[in-house]
Amino acid sequence: MKVLVTGTSGMLGSEVLCALTDRGDAGTALDRATFLRVEATERSSMLDGFDVVIHAAANTNVEQCELMPEESYRDNCFLTEQLFRYSRRHGAKFVFISSTGVYGRGKSSPYHEYDAVSPTTVHHRSKLMAEQTVLTCTDTLVVRTGWLFGGRVDNPKNFVANRLKEIRAVNGSITANSGQIGSPTYVRDCARVLLELIADDCMGIYNVVNEGSASRFEYVKQIVELSGAPIDVQPIDASSFKRHADVSENEAAVSYRMRFEERPPLRPWRDALADYMIDARLLGSLMRADQNC
């Protein structure tokens, strides 16, 4: 299987390339800036010869999208429209990576694929609009995921590494939002299931997240505990954050479709987080010498 992947400098896209190699498939990276810069005929040729196009690139800066919506719609809608158009021309299966944030504020429990969507930010509206374009063809696949962790520790969007940097810079305690909940998801697990869905020629919308949900406070507290840092994590509510984006308090999800198809769920997020921190040599990395005594 020949697969073209966008967003390979990001956490999920880079992990998808690695997972393709592990499966013995041919994965090729596509730079979105180059794709948008060239003429239409060259755009078309860049997608020629591929069986699958996995579109994992996106403008994920929710705050920046609110301040500069034109950039959000260019990066998340227009780019998707162009990739989708040319993938269809060449007969490639199109796979779009979306966000559990598109569900909005409809409920307080985890969302499933049959819940209504009502996004509350420019970023999530742009992702939903891109979904709607992609789903005009019945054989496409949309994967909604969120609260991703994993990948290279030097990636500027690495949530775990950024929290450890924050811990190193303070004494005593840090704070985390106790009001917002989501489903922390390991990019390695997400990439594996994504490729399984593609191999099985699955279509439509799938939530792909690790099992369980957590508040940001619980998530950060678990990172701190696994790092061994001798500090406290203090819960604070959303009103303490000055944000331009009206982010939903609930981005947690479950997959009814995987359950209906009797697919095994992704492992609990706490287990996945521990494995990632072991692999990245972050487990116990902030433990003081006297804590080993």
Rank of each mutant, 00 (worst) to 15 (best):
R125V: 12
T121Q: 06
P264E: 13
V220W: 08
G13W: 02
C190I: 05
F94P: 01
S285A: 12
W269H: 11
K93T: 01
C137R: 15
S99V: 03
V117I: 15
R23W: 00
Q291E: 02
T28H: 07
R259E: 11
G27A: 03
V160E: 09
Y206R: 11
W147F: 11
A191P: 06
R259I: 01
V153M: 09
T60A: 12
L47M: 07
E211R: 06
R281S: 13
A92L: 00
G91C: 01
T100G: 13
W147P: 11
K2N: 14
G24K: 11
V233W: 03
T133K: 13
G104L: 08
K2W: 03
L30G: 09
G150P: 04
D201T: 05
F35V: 14
D232W: 02
A130Q: 12
A229V: 12
M258Q: 12
V16S: 05
S227P: 08
T121G: 07
T28N: 05
G284P: 00
N210Q: 10
N158I: 09
S118E: 11
P235E: 04
L47A: 08
G101R: 04
E211K: 06
A92M: 00
P110V: 09
H90D: 04
L83A: 02
L286W: 01
Y256E: 12
I167E: 00
A19I: 00
A57P: 07
D290N: 03
T80Q: 08
L283W: 09
F35S: 00
